[in-house]
Design a protein around this nucleic acid. Sequence first.
DNA 1: ATGATATTTCGATATTTCCAAAATTATGGA
DNA 2: TCCATAATTTTGGAAATATCGAAATATCAT
Lengths: 113, 113
Amino acid sequence: MESSSIVAALSSLAQETRLAVFRTLVEAGPDGMAAGAIAERLKLPAPTLSFHIAQLERAGIVASRRAGRSIMYAAHFPAMQALIEALTESCCAGNPEACGFPKPKSKRRKVAA
Amino acid sequence: MESSSIVAALSSLAQETRLAVFRTLVEAGPDGMAAGAIAERLKLPAPTLSFHIAQLERAGIVASRRAGRSIMYAAHFPAMQALIEALTESCCAGNPEACGFPKPKSKRRKVAA
DNA sequence: ATGATATTTCGATATTTCCAAAATTATGGA
DNA sequence: TCCATAATTTTGGAAATATCGAAATATCAT
């Protein structure tokens, strides 16, 4: 993962409102939630939510799809996984096991068939 | 982990210079590096490094100790671990295995003797 | 088409963050 | 004590980010 992508992903989560939005979406599951429902749940004015969720989307942390008049947002788990792996790598690189994780060297290996 | 601590930790890493500093410190290992050495390595003016590394320290991501005239900074691995675990939890909560991690429910269990 | 609803974009302001030169503080050696 | 070195704090200005009302856009139902 590119250093700039890591920074972008971290930045997108490094804000109370956006972290709350992301958590709400994780809770909501793969189908996600409509923008309006998120705004209502978090008591956010629509433009404020829109501003923040756009950043999460730009960072690839959430995905959107239109459903009628609504726009459904959902957590994008692979991106989150990639971020966590990148952090783990950053953390452990050159210092294997310092982090206490099982496989510090390589990216998690695919399950052999 | 408190939501505000997560945001603080993420914010501290969500910046190119600070991420580079952190990585340098991970590479340096548990003994860490003197502020001046970090600044030289990353070609940063001393006040700029000081500004950024203070944020990493406030977030608990790095630790410092004085050694003579120098101040040694070192990555604080437990904090990084906690952050990664918090993210994993945020990511997986309510959606176990969506993230593809082995033990999605509880905090990593200690290695049985 | 017209109206109602859902959301985003625009615009203006307030706040925070970033940067680095200048000044300050802390430490150790002669 | 005086000097040199290592770092931080202060300072101030530029740039980026946050907030949210008003306006614009998109979609569906009639």
